[in-house]
Design a protein around this nucleic acid. Sequence first.
DNA 1: ATTATATTTAGAATAGTTCTAATTCTCTAT
DNA 2: ATAGAGAATTAGAACTATTCTAAATATAAT
Lengths: 140, 140
Amino acid sequence: MNHKLCLSTEEIQAKLQASGVQPTLQRIAICKYVLCEADHPNAEQVKEWAEKNLDKISQATVYNTLNTLVEVGLLRIFKFPHSEKVIYDNNVHDHYHFLDESSGNLYDIETKDVSVDMEVPPKFIVNSIEIVLKGQLKAT
Amino acid sequence: MNHKLCLSTEEIQAKLQASGVQPTLQRIAICKYVLCEADHPNAEQVKEWAEKNLDKISQATVYNTLNTLVEVGLLRIFKFPHSEKVIYDNNVHDHYHFLDESSGNLYDIETKDVSVDMEVPPKFIVNSIEIVLKGQLKAT
DNA sequence: ATTATATTTAGAATAGTTCTAATTCTCTAT
DNA sequence: ATAGAGAATTAGAACTATTCTAAATATAAT
């Protein structure tokens, strides 16, 4: 499950404005998807959704909007070894990921559930840690 | 510093043969670079080196060879968030990475220097862990 | 030597993303 | 309301990293 925000159009509008981004029709629509509905989508999935849900949208706008949302910190961008495509994550606080290698699905892992102790050479000043756990889901 | 192997032409030949790979001129040359000299190179860097050190080499051969070496386990492939390009790692046992965000350089981190304790939901069966530490090198 | 198989090659093709420059929208000041 | 300025959107071209194609060449096995 992703970090669902369940925002109304007005809340999205406010969020964009607070971030200094003009709340255009296209941007609000894309936010509805990437902030509320989608779970680690890639640009293609966002484009497909937008094409279904808007009269008219260009590929460039989808990419522009996603890049803008990343710039203002409403979205985070990740790239994983199993796919060429960048994915967008509406969970913008620190967290790790679990990759289900059978389905390619990603799951968020809370940083508090993983403790990391390092004894790395002192010349390395570590600012952030990225962790991807890989495996499968237990058959039920 | 990378995991330098310092192999002679004969040793490389033997290694390829042992892996069931025909030791062609091009493959031996590329191995010299990626197994002995290079430090986390990408395909472009391998191609540049090969073009300098061989009479004639095609891009396709560089990619074919690198893919073959990955297939037989002489090389590992990694993709990092800071670059579009895949990198090749001659350190084929488990390890983590430190990314110097100022230079883009990668350093290997031994798994023994990092202890990871997880308390993740039981539905996740974890087979492997990928860790990238990001930061800078201490100014000397 | 001959043949079969594997490798290499040049160049085309592909995938994902960004760029370009023209058009349209939105906001503010009148 | 309306003009003008600046921002956003658009279609399509361009770009980058990698893979594919089909022909040529090399290597290995008979």
